[in-house]
Simulated scan of single mutants.
Amino acid sequence: MLSLGALGAAGLLYAGADAQVLKNHDSNAPVNFTADRIEVQDRADRVVVSGNVEVTQAGMTLNAARMTVAYRNQPGGGTGPGGVEIDRIDASGNVVVRKADQTAKGNVAIYDLNSRLITMLGNVSLTQGSNRLTGGRLVIDLTSGRSTVDGRAAGGGGPGVSGSGSGGRVSGTFTVPQRKD
């Protein structure tokens, strides 16, 4: 397991105010989406969106071929109708998460809005500028801004579970600043 929080000095997460662009992401901000098709499944408290799906929230963008949004109906506050509170978004098919200069990609992703975690599985990559990490699983903590990359898509692995074809290993490329002599 390779933790990007520990690699800040190594170059993937740059020093400075914007070093961890996903830190303190506002998971309570409104969630907006566009898609080619939407299917509301009220009895199951979910919405299925498909075809060029794009979800935006507080400067973060999530793209995928298909997403399932699990929600809860909130009761009205006396004078008005209640609302919908999103608990989780499951995305599949060329999933891309972007905020500022950080981009994460994978086969599938689970965005748990309550725990403020995004877990991506299968052929994951995390890039910032010219720095890049690849592996099988990526977990992004939106509270701390810390990202963790594992070599295998699911803990112990198994046939067909290795994410990047790297034998369950994480690989990376980091830019080294040019030193002046």
Rank of each mutant, 00 (worst) to 15 (best):
Q178N: 08
T175L: 11
A109W: 04
G122H: 12
V96C: 03
R43N: 12
V170H: 08
D141C: 04
R37K: 15
G93C: 03
T61Y: 05
A65N: 13
L138R: 08
G160Q: 12
D26C: 07
D45W: 02
A17C: 04
S125D: 04
G5I: 01
A65T: 06
L138M: 10
R146T: 14
V49C: 11
A100P: 08
D87K: 10
V53H: 00
L7A: 09
T79Q: 04
G136I: 01
T143R: 12
N32S: 13
K105N: 15
N28H: 10
I89K: 02
I89A: 05
T134A: 11
Q74Y: 02
D150I: 02
T34H: 04
G160K: 13
T34W: 07
A154V: 15
G172S: 09
S171H: 13
G82W: 06
G129Y: 07
P159K: 10
I89T: 04
R169S: 01
G80K: 02
V48E: 11
D181I: 12
M1K: 11
V95Y: 01
T173E: 05
V48C: 03
T127D: 03
N32G: 10
N63H: 09
G135I: 05
G167S: 07
A104I: 15
S166N: 14
D150C: 05
G93V: 03
S92D: 07
R88S: 02
A6T: 13
A109M: 12
A35K: 09
S130R: 07
L62S: 09
R146Q: 11
G78H: 04
T61I: 09
R179S: 15
L7R: 02
L4E: 04
T56F: 12
A70L: 11
A10E: 14
A154K: 15
D141E: 08
R72M: 06
V139A: 11
T127K: 06
P30Y: 03
D112G: 01
T68M: 06
Y111R: 07
M120K: 06
R169V: 02
T61L: 05
R116D: 02
A100Q: 15
M67H: 03
G11W: 09
V176Y: 06
L117P: 02
Q178C: 00
V108N: 15
P75H: 04
N24Q: 14
S144K: 10
G122W: 14
G78W: 07
S115L: 08
G16P: 08
S130K: 03
G160C: 09
Q128C: 00
D42W: 03
T173V: 14
T68H: 05
V47F: 05
N73W: 04
A100L: 14
V84F: 06
D150L: 15
P75E: 11
D18P: 00
Y71M: 11
P75M: 09
R179M: 13
N94E: 13
F174K: 08
S27L: 00
Y14K: 12
E39A: 12
N107K: 15
R146Y: 11
E54N: 14
N24F: 02
G158T: 04
P177D: 08
E85A: 15
D45C: 05
T143H: 10
A44K: 12
G156V: 14
D150M: 14
G122A: 11
V97K: 00
K99E: 04
E54I: 14
V55D: 01
S3D: 10
G78A: 10
V40N: 14
P177N: 10
